[in-house]
């Protein structure tokens, strides 16, 4: 046990944390409280008058079928993005873990997509899947499939899911690879001697031992899918066609800055803030304490 060290009173610790506190106050506390306040107001489209309405904005939201529709879409979207990106990342990490020669190069290439800005990634997928110019619809035509995500909502959703997952694979890959490499080789060897084949070894030994990493990534990926996919959605579909790719974070923007319903938009962002706080609590409660196999 370390004994607590006592220092004399000094301004230095406060000075050292001051920049961080300033950043948090200016860029988080202030806007967040503005959003909270705004969510209790109804404002006309020109910003000339506003009225304090208590929780009317929220009541309206919860009765709005479009909002629930967006909620549902967001869950489907997040679930699929998280599973697709984590699944592919795990597969790639397992294979990269076995590579002996040129592993550095292989890994570097796999990490690249993470360095691509969301809007640039969106533009890339936009061009690849563009119904008139894109290479993939052209290829799909040969097998008799007519791809047009500009009119087909399911295809549009599939496209944003692909694009959003693709960008997150690199990040997940890094963590899975690190997780795999921290599993002692002797465990795998012991399982091999015990008669477990590669598949069985993976599911009974490797996968359970990766669960802290998996759980951590699950939270990170859900947060990513909820909040950081705005750029991708905006660049590829702008929420369309017919709101079919309008996830919550996009709806905040759309209602607030396009629809100019500032109060309703603020109420939506307050709800999103609540979700983030919830996920963060889960993260700290479970990831850091419960799901751990380290001695």
């Amino acid at each position: 046990m370390l004994k607590r060290v006592h220092f004399g009173p000094s301004a230095l610790p406060y000075l050292l944390v001051l920049p961080q506190i300033l950043v948090t106050v200016i860029f988080f506390i202030w806007p967040a409280s503005q959003a909270l306040y705004q969510s209790l107001l109804v404002e006309d489209a020109f910003g000339l008058s506003s009225k304090f309405v208590w929780f009317e904005n929220f009541e309206y939201l919860f009765e709005d079928p479009y909002y629930w529709g967006s909620f549902q879409r967001t869950f489907v979207f997040s679930f699929l993005v998280a599973s697709l990106s984590m699944g592919s990342a795990l597969l790639l990490a397992v294979m990269a873990d076995r590579v002996v020669k040129g592993s550095g190069l292989y890994r570097t290439f796999l990490i690249w997509p993470y360095a691509v800005a969301p809007a640039a990634a969106g533009a890339l997928w936009f061009f690849m899947f563009n119904p008139t110019l894109g290479i993939l619809p052209y290829v799909l035509q040969f097998i008799g499939y007519d791809w047009n995500h500009k009119v087909n909502g399911t295809e549009a959703m599939a496209l944003v899911i692909f694009a959003a997952s693709w960008k997150q694979i690199a990040y997940n890959f890094l963590f899975f690879l690190a997780g795999l490499q921290s599993i002692p080789k002797s465990l795998i060897e012991a399982a091999a001697i015990d008669g477990a084949g590669p598949g069985r070894r993976f599911w009974t030994i490797v996968f359970p031992l990766l669960s802290p990493t998996t759980f951590f990534l699950l939270v990170i990926n859900v947060v990513y899918a909820f909040f950081e996919t705005f750029g991708i959605v905006d660049a590829i579909t702008s929420g369309g066609p017919a709101n079919s790719t309008q996830i919550l974070v996009y709806k905040v923007y759309n209602d607030g800055f396009v629809g100019l319903d500032l109060g309703g938009s603020a109420a939506q962002s307050v709800i999103l803030m609540g979700i983030v706080i919830g996920l963060t609590v889960i993260q700290f409660r479970f990831v850091e304490k419960k799901v751990s196999y380290n001695d």
């Binding site: 002692p184 002797s186 465990l187 060897e189 012991a190 399982a191 091999a192 001697i193 015990d194 008669g195 477990a196 009974t204 030994i205 359970p208 031992l209 669960s211 196999y293 001695d295």
Partner: peptide, 29 residues
């Protein structure tokens, strides 16, 4: 394959499966 050689091995770091109980560690094979 190692499993077909009818051998058992004790490792330096024991290589026990950390997520299984002692019973299951022995019962795994």
């Amino acid at each position: 394959e190692p499993s077909k050689r009818d051998i058992a091995m004790v490792f330096q770091n024991y290589a026990l499966y950390p997520h299984m109980t002692v019973y299951n560690n022995m019962a795994y094979g």
